[in-house]
Design a protein around this nucleic acid. Structure first.
Lengths: 187, 187
DNA sequence: AGGATATGTAAACCACCGTTTACTTAAGGG
DNA sequence: CCCTTAAGTAAACGGTGGTTTACATATCCT
């Protein structure tokens, strides 16, 4: 039988790089930056630690690539303004812990000065600034900050330090309070 | 001249222990748990790395002692309910980064599984539970969660990933929004 | 087909860290 | 005053981690 060499080549730099990136995202989101070893990441990707140097340059660069691939303000800036609060809460509560969510990764990496600097810059460039522009006006930056604070805080007590009220499905009152609070940044 | 042996003894276990604890709080709040070495802490305290084992047992125990010394729900539960929102904002904005604030320490330590478990337990026992009781009623826990989320989020974007809107003195509109949001958890 | 090149591997290197051990020195009671 | 004990020190140990080096092998073009 002809094996599908095109679909599953034994050696494929792009695929290997992508596998390492995906494994890094999973691992960094779960065990942070400092506590995640390159040997652990590459083992999960079925690759070799030395390939991180080859494809990304260093662990820091790998982290930067992993985070940049997850950060995207459009998840928020494409929502309709009329039902903004409800939509945000829907997104927040739909997100499964550890599944392509940049925030735990950022927070778990914040202990390392270099990783934090990378996160800070990426956060500003590809999230805060677009969000500020989307809010618009003189208070756009302040609204973006308030939005980020509440959304991040929710994630902290849902994924990092789970509180029953957030980690186990939230009740209708809480959902309404969150939605109304997010909405109040627009009205 | 008689040197004040009572005020500044050369060898004093209690004083040395306290110095290590203070240095640990400062260092853990600044560089996290994993990235802070015992040699660094003890050097700042003018002590020896081996004394951590003697006085605290291990690095984990030192972290636990350092965090427990900072966590206290009474900063919140002693506020008057009528002007709760304003009072909370006053406390949040008065807090100088890195100065006896348990939150950055908790967040920066969250990458290490053991340190996170310690933080989680302490947080529940000496903060969330008292706060839940203070709010009271069926939704006490949910209110405590919402409070913690917004307060933590504010701290994150003030101390960890500084946004101009929070890190450089906040404007009156933002202050009002925060105060009103905190107050809405009571009314 | 065959050699040049891209891809992957294994092992070593070097530095750091938490902890333990053996030792030195100051403090304090009889 | 001496000697027991507490307090502090220095160095070594075992383990780990990022990175580099030297090497093996699959892939691709002529």
């Amino acid at each position: 039988m002809a094996e599908s060499a095109v679909l599953k080549p034994v050696r494929d730099a792009q695929r290997t790089r992508a596998a390492i990136l995906a494994a890094a995202q999973e691992a960094f989101s779960r065990t942070g930056y400092l506590d995640t070893g390159l040997r652990e990441i590459t083992a999960a990707a079925g690759a070799n630690p030395a390939l991180v140097s080859r494809y990304f340059g260093s662990k820091e660069k790998l982290y930067e690539a992993a985070l940049a691939d997850l950060l995207d303000a459009r998840t928020i800036t494409t929502l309709r303004r009329e039902a903004f609060g409800e939509a945000v809460v829907a997104i927040l509560t739909a997100t499964v812990p550890g599944q392509r969510n940049p925030l735990p990764m950022m927070l778990l990496a914040s202990a390392d000065p270099t990783a934090r600097a990378i996160s800070h810059r990426l956060l500003m460039d590809v999230f805060i600034e677009p969000l500020t522009a989307w809010y618009g006006g003189a208070r756009g930056a302040a609204k973006a900050a308030c939005f980020s604070a509440l959304a991040s805080g929710f994630t902290v007590y849902r994924d990092l330090y789970p509180l029953e009220a957030f980690a186990g499905g939230i009740d209708d009152e809480t959902r309404r309070w969150l939605a109304a609070t997010f909405q109040s940044l627009i009205d």
